[in-house]
């Protein structure tokens, strides 16, 4: 039984990862792409790891999977933040359909 639930979690996780990749291709500009990549890949990968935890239970492997979930939750948004900030500082413009850029306005002051 828990085996099926685990496989379900892994399958749904992979679907979310796939959607994240689709977002990388379809969305314009680096910032929008980061949005899709961070969110989907965080949840997708966490679900895969949670599936691994369900499969192995509280054993050496399962505990490591849980720890990895914690680390991904902490590091993935941080790296997205670093990439976005770096791109903005090195002058990557927002997509032309963008509505506003308060950061650019404040930089000029």
């Amino acid at each position: 039984m828990s085996n099926h639930v685990a496989i379900g979690f892994i399958a749904v996780g992979v679907i979310f990862d796939l959607l994240g990749c689709l977002g990388l291709i379809r969305l314009p500009d680096v910032y929008n792409r980061l949005q899709a990549a961070t969110k989907s890949v965080t949840l997708g990968t966490c679900m895969v790891l949670f599936g691994v935890f369900l499969e192995f239970g509280f054993t050496a492997g399962g505990a490591k999977a849980l720890l990895c979930i914690l680390f991904i939750l902490l590091t993935s948004p941080t790296s997205a933040h670093a990439l976005a900030r770096g791109s903005h500082i090195s002058g990557f413009k927002l997509w032309e359909g963008s509505v506003m850029d308060k950061l650019e306005e404040d930089k000029g002051e």
Binding site: L19, L22, G23, A36, K39, L43, L94, S98, K102
Partner: peptide
């Protein structure tokens, strides 16, 4: 996070790409 993923999924799959991005 789960809500966010359905949001991203909706925007990515939608043929018209319903986004209105910017920095606030």
């Amino acid at each position: 996070i789960i809500l966010a993923n359905f949001d991203v999924a909706y925007r990515v799959i939608h043929p018209a790409l319903p986004i209105r991005p910017g920095i606030v």
